[in-house]
Computed example of a mutant assay.
Amino acid sequence: MSENPVAGRVVLIAGATSASGLAAARALAEAGARVVAVGRDEDRLAELAQAVPGIRVEVADLTDEAAVHALHDRVGAVDGVLHLVGGWRGGGGLAGQSEADYRFLELSFTALRVVSREFDADLRAAGRARLAIVSSTAVDKPLAGGANYAAVKAASEAWTRAVAQGFAKAARDAGAPLTAAATVFRVKSLEGLEAELAARFTALWAEDAASVNGTIIPL
């Protein structure tokens, strides 16, 4: 295995215009990855590109299949995806869980489904590929005031584990070793953990795929 398994890898950061996106872009770029930072806000992406020279930024609506397909055409095959599309709305107990808030939160799950489907074949074909999402401890301990949020995170975890099972099945069917892995990072809050998330995601490439595929990693 290469001393630096991240060097030269094309890694897409979905929802990159956050503190976590900045930390991840910086860590991956410093490790030698070819970073593609994707978001909807052109101005914030420009700021990110200035903060981390050498990365590529792309404006795209990751909930739109046609837009993500066009993004794929522009950037080509990828070796990694870090899904940071998210947000928080909640409070007010169960009665306060509005449909509007749920639909807003659901966008992150929609983006995960669209992006992972579009780039699935790339990740399976790559010599070493990693996909990761950021989930929440609320999945195990949901509160009435955060029911919408916990439900979306639980669905996202289930989808990611399904991606992991697809990676494993494809390898078994081909009689080949598993080289792709899908992982869930769980946090109570990302505030203050941005650098740790970036480092742990980057470090996934140094781990054996079978040891991290389908796993939940607490931060």
Rank of each mutant, 00 (worst) to 15 (best):
E99D: 09
A170V: 05
A67D: 06
L71H: 03
V75F: 03
W205F: 11
G214E: 10
Q97V: 00
E207I: 01
G32Y: 06
W205P: 04
A195M: 08
L28Q: 02
G96F: 00
S156V: 04
V184Y: 08
T17K: 01
G93I: 00
L219M: 12
A203S: 09
R130A: 06
N213I: 00
A16C: 11
N148Q: 02
R161C: 10
E65P: 14
A181G: 01
V139T: 14
A209N: 01
H72M: 05
L123S: 10
S136L: 05
A129Q: 01
V38D: 07
L12E: 00
D41I: 03
V115M: 07
L107T: 09
A24G: 00
D122S: 12
A171P: 11
A151T: 12
V81M: 13
V139D: 05
R161M: 12
K141L: 07
F109N: 06
V38G: 09
A206G: 02
R9A: 10
L28K: 04
M1Y: 03
E58H: 05
T160D: 12
G8R: 00
R44Y: 03
R74G: 06
V139I: 13
L178S: 06
W159G: 11
A181W: 00
W205L: 05
Q50L: 14
L45S: 05
L48F: 09
W88V: 06
A138P: 02
E157R: 15
T160K: 10
A14T: 08
I13K: 13
E106N: 14
F201V: 03
A199G: 15
V152G: 13
G166W: 10
V85L: 04
A158D: 15
G91V: 00
R161N: 02
T63I: 05
A164P: 01
A164V: 04
F109C: 05
S2I: 06
A203L: 03
G145F: 00
L12D: 02
L62H: 08
V59P: 02
V35E: 07
P142N: 06
V36W: 02
A147W: 00
A77K: 14
A111S: 15
A29P: 00
V85A: 01
H72R: 11
R40A: 04
A158F: 14
A77W: 04
N4M: 01
E106A: 15
I216Q: 06
E157Q: 15
G80P: 02
A150K: 04
V114G: 05
S20N: 12
A29C: 06
V10K: 15
V75S: 03
V81L: 15
A129F: 05
A66K: 14
G90N: 08
